[in-house]
Design a protein around this nucleic acid. Structure first.
Lengths: 130, 130, 130, 130
DNA sequence: GTGGTCTAGACCACA
DNA sequence: GTGGTCTAGACCACA
C-alpha cells in the first residue's frame, strides 16, 4: 500500500493517512485481517511524527476499520457497520457535502460532478458490481 | 439574497456564507457588478462575528467571485477560472475519493452512493440553473 | 460539575475525565446543550496538559456525547444512539467485563457484585424509573 | 486446568490468564498448595510469550493467589485478603460507575444493564461455586 | 478568546 | 519489538 502526503491539501496529515487507508481497504488492496505497518515504521516512511500516524490509526479503530492488539500491532478489522443507518447517512452526507462544496468552488456543474463520481467509482472499485 | 446559518452544520460558518454567495452568483440571483452588503452590515444581519464575514468575503475575492474596491466595498466580479482543468479535476477527485472510501467503509453500495449524491444535490443546490 | 483525577487509578487520566463527564451527563448533572468548560480552562483546573483534556473531549465527541463548534467550544450533544444494537451491546459488555474482572480480583462473589450494582444505580440515577 | 486465550478480547492476554487461574482457584478446581505449571511450559502450551505468563503469575503473587518458591516454581497460596473492605468497595464502585455511565450513554435502561450483567456473569463465570 | 494539528520526546504496558 | 499516555510548546483556523 502506497500512502502519499500532499502538504497543501484541505485535509490535515492524519486525515489524509486515514482517508487513503480507508480507500485501500475499500478497494480491497489490503486484505481483511492483514497487519498494518507499525506506527513507528509508517511515521518513518512518511517523515511525520508517530503521534500523527497514531491519531490516524486511532480514528480508523473507532470507526471499526482497524483493530489494535496491545504489543502486537494494528490489523484490518473484519467487523463492519457499527453505526445505525441514520448515523451512516449523516457521515456519508458530510463527505458528499464536502465534495459538493469543492465542486461549487471549482465551478463544476451538478451534472459534471455526477459524471465524475461514476468515473472514479469505475477506477476505484472495478471489481464490484455497479 | 437570503443567507441562512446552520450552527451545527458540517461546514463552518464562513464556509456556509461563502457557499451561499457562490450559489447565488451562479444562479444569477445577484447581478454581475452589483454591490454586496458591507461586512459589518451582513455580520449584524446574521448575528456572527465580523471577522467571520470578512473571512468569507476574502475567500471569494481570492477565488475571483467578488472584487473589493478600497473604501467602497465588495462587488460581484466578472467570472474567471483560475485553475487549469487538470488541477480542478485533481482537487475534485480527492474529495470524491474520500467520499467513496467513506461510503465503502460505511457499507454503502456504489448505487446507494450515487443516489445519495443526487439527493444531497437536490437539497443543497435546489434553485441552481443548469 | 466536579472532576477528580486519581493518580493511581486503572484508568488513564483522559479516560477518567471522559468517564466522569459521561456519568455527569447520565445523572443529568449537566443539561443537554450546555457549554462545557474550555479545553484550556479544564486543563488548568485539573493541572494536566490541554492535549489530555482534548483527547477526552474528542472521545466523547466520537461517541456522540459532546459536540464541538470551531472557535466556540464544546457542548453537551442532544444526539444519542449512533451505534447499532450489536455495537451498543459490545461496548456495554466491555464495561461490564471490566467490572466483573475487578470483582473477581477483589474477591467479591457474583451476588455481591449484583447487589452493589443495584446500590450504585440507586445512588447515581435516583430520578429514573427502575 | 484448561486456559483458553481469546486474541481479540477486551482483556489483554496476561489478564485472561490471570483471571482464569483466579477463577479456577476460587472454584476449587486447583487445590490449595498445588504446583502450577512452569512459566515456560504454560507459555509453550498457550503459544504466548513467556513474559506474558510471567506477568500473569507476578500479578497473582502480588494479590496473594499464588506463591513463588525460588528454584521450585509457583504454588497455589492459602488465601488472604489484602485490602480493607472499604478500599475493595471503592475500587468496585469505580468500575461499576464507569459501566453505569457507559450504559446511559448507550441509551440502556437500569433494568437492561442489570439483566446484561447477569448474562455476562453466566458467560464468564459459568462453573463458579457460590 | 475558542478548538485543531503537529512535533519532539519521555515513559510505561504488553508480547 | 509493539502500542498507549502524557507533557511542553508551537502554530494555525475560526468566531
Amino acid at each position: 500500500m502506497q500512502i502519499k502526503i500532499t502538504p497543501g491539501s484541505t485535509l490535515s496529515i492524519y486525515q489524509q493517512i486515514a482517508a487513503q487507508i480507508r480507500q485501500a481497504v475499500a478497494a480491497e488492496q489490503i486484505e481483511l485481517g492483514a497487519a498494518m505497518p507499525s506506527v513507528r515504521q509508517l511515521a518513518k516512511d512518511l517523515v511525520v511524527n508517530p503521534n500523527t500516524v497514531a491519531k490516524a490509526y486511532g480514528e480508523l479503530v473507532r470507526d471499526g476499520v482497524l483493530q489494535s492488539q496491545q504489543g502486537r500491532g494494528y490489523f484490518v478489522a473484519r467487523r463492519k457497520s457499527i453505526f445505525t443507518r441514520r448515523e451512516r447517512l449523516r457521515r456519508l452526507d458530510a463527505a458528499l457535502d464536502t465534495a459538493i462544496g469543492e465542486a461549487v468552488t471549482l465551478d463544476f456543474s451538478a451534472d459534471e460532478l455526477s459524471e465524475r463520481l461514476q468515473y472514479r467509482l469505475g477506477q476505484l472499485l472495478p471489481k464490484q458490481a455497479k
